[in-house]
Each structure stands twice: as C-alpha cells, then as structure tokens.
C-alpha cells in the first residue's frame, strides 16, 4: 500500500498529539490540577490513529475508560477536552463527564465509558442505525483485553453477526486487565471473535501501518454490506491502569523492554515508508502541538467551574413538559 506524505504527516501529528496531550495531563494530574481518575493511553496511539483515520464524522466509535486517544483521533476538540478533564463549565461535557465520559455526537464519538465492556452494545446500536438508514456508515467499538471477557462483548459480537451490522470490533490487547496479567495468548481474542463467524485478524498494535491496513479492509467490508469484522491489536501498556498505579505487579525488565519495543512513534519514524518525511516539518508539528497544549492548558486551568445550578440541568430533555 502506498501512503501519501499527507497521510503520513497526519498519522504522525495525531499520534504525537495524543502522546503529548497525555504527558501534559499526567503532569497536571500529579500537580493536583485534575480531579478523579485518568487512564493513560501511551504506546497504544497507533491503534486509535490507524483505526480512526478511516472514519468520518458520521461514522461512530464507542470508546473505553482509556479513551483520550480515541477522542483525539476521532476529532474531538483539544481545548474542549482539556476543559473537560479539568471539569470546567465550558468542557466538552460541561464538566459533568470528566476524563471517562468525553463524547461529541457531532464527531460520531459516542463516549468514553467507565464501565468495562459498556461500549460495544452502544456501538452495535449505531451500526444498526447505519444499517437501517442504508447510508454506508460504520461503527467501531474499542475493547480492551479485559473487556473482551465481558458478556456484553460476547452479546454484541453475536448481535453484529446475526444482523450483519457494519461494525468493527477493535480490540486493544495491552496484556493487563487493570492490575492483572491477562493469561490469554496473543491472538486468542481475535479467535474468539472469529468463532462468531466474522473475519478476525491479529496485528501489531504498535505498528501504525499494520493497524491502518487491517482496519481499512474491515471498514470497507462494513461499508459494502459485508458485515462485522474484528481486529486484535497487540500492544503494551506503558503506564499503570490509572495514573498513580506504580505497576509493582510487573517485572521491571519486562516493563522497560516492552516500553521500548512497543513505542509506535519510534517505530513509525524508523519505517522505510516514512523516509521522505522532512525533519524540519516534524519539528514544526511538534512545536505546534506544544503551542496548542500550552494555550489549552492555560485556558482550562483558569476557566470557570460549573455554577451550582448546572447540577440540575440536562438530566432530561424535558421531565414535566417544560420546554427544553
């Protein structure tokens, strides 16, 4: 497959933006500026980007608790996300969602999700909408290796196959279900999905090109009425389950070695297909990302908190017939 420079720069920029966004969030979290839990996506960037580059605003994704990368790759506004992580009034969810519920219907982003395995039935519903309207759109659920064991995922695989929904099960196998090593061998998750009858492949989740090409096929299949597909992208979780988890349950050497060998950005830039990328242009992209984050963080941290009356807003469109 040939890649245009434009595609390569876009892939690099989005992966790097996710990386730097999260490193910045991590720093702010450690300074006590962000409430709640945040879950780092580092070293899985190639999966979100390789997958979402095939999707438009009217294609849908359902994300996970480790969702910042998916949100950015699907086009959520960076400042609006920063405001939400700081739980501010102007946040993408008006400060009521926080890190684990970032959503943007206008971008087809149906929400990060704090329930492990919560997203796939919702993504199946979005795929049902696409099937009913016959509009050629597709829906994708991101699913961790932990979530792959949930009943909701099994139910969604079955429903998607039975109804031949235009859906992609995008597994991210980072080997850890919270603090517990997932005992399944790589590829087992895809095998399970395949057992429902759909095409299922396993790829290196730190290889942008491998993800991009596998998802490309799956998305095309969905758009053309060929039903659901599953992709298991094997990755490595760089940081702990949530920020603050020191991963004492992991072997130090294994951790360090997987951190190096699974870095998608290093791998991407070292790939022959990227040999024509201009280093000054890469530096410009990096600088622009820092400018974007600096401005966004400054605005987010100084922005107004929600006013108390917001507590009562947006539970319903209209509960007692009052106008919305």
């Amino acid at each position: 497959m040939n890649y245009s420079l434009e595609t390569l720069y876009e892939a690099y920029r989005t992966m790097k933006l996710i990386r730097e966004f999260e490193e910045r969030m991590r720093a702010e979290y450690q300074r006590g500026k962000l409430p709640g839990f945040i879950h780092m996506y580092r070293n899985q960037e190639a999966i979100a980007v390789g997958a979402c580059m095939h999707l438009g605003n009217e294609d849908y994704i359902a994300s996970t608790h480790r969702g910042h990368g998916h949100c950015i790759a699907k086009g959520c506004d960076i400042e609006d996300m920063l405001l939400e992580l700081a739980c501010k009034q102007e946040g993408i969810c008006k400060g009521k969602g926080g890190s684990m519920h970032i959503a943007d219907m206008s971008k087809g982003m149906l929400g990060a999700n704090a329930i492990v395995g919560g997203g796939p039935p919702i993504a199946a519903g979005a795929a049902l909408t696409a099937r009913t309207l016959g509009n050629g759109k597709v829906s994708m659920a991101f699913i961790g290796d932990g979530a792959s064991d949930q009943g909701t995922v099994a139910e969604s695989l079955n429903l998607a196959f039975v109804l031949q929904l235009p859906m992609i099960f995008m597994y991210e196998n980072n080997h850890y279900a919270e603090f517990t090593r997932n005992p399944k061998p790589d590829g087992r998750i895809a095998e399970r999905a395949g057992a429902y009858g759909m095409p299922a492949v396993t790829v290196d989740g730190s290889d942008f090109f491998a993800v991009y090409e596998a998802v490309g096929e799956a998305v095309q299949r969905g758009r053309e009425g060929g039903g659901p597909s599953a992709i298991e992208a094997v990755a490595s979780r760089y940081y702990g389950h949530f920020e603050g988890d020191a991963q004492q349950y992991r072997d130090g050497e294994e951790l360090e070695s997987s951190r190096r060998s699974y870095d998608p950005l290093t791998k991407f830039l070292a790939d022959d297909r990227c040999s024509d990328l201009d280093s000054s242009k890469i530096k410009q992209i990096d600088d622009d990302i820092q400018d974007l984050l600096n401005a966004g963080v400054e605005r987010a941290l100084s922005a107004a908190d929600p006013t108390p009356d917001q507590l009562y807003k947006d539970v319903y469109v209209s509960y007692r017939g009052e106008s919305a």
Partner: peptide
C-alpha cells in the same frame, strides 16, 4: 434479536443516540 438483553437494550440506546 438473539436472546441477549444487554445487546438489545444497549443497541437500542446506541441507535437512539444516532438518529433512530
């Protein structure tokens, strides 16, 4: 649908969220 209530209700929610 199959006899899978989480998928039925969840998919109904997802379909509602996206225009049905």
């Amino acid at each position: 649908t199959p006899i899978t209530e989480s998928a039925i209700i969840g998919a109904a929610g997802g379909a509602a969220l996206t225009g049905l």
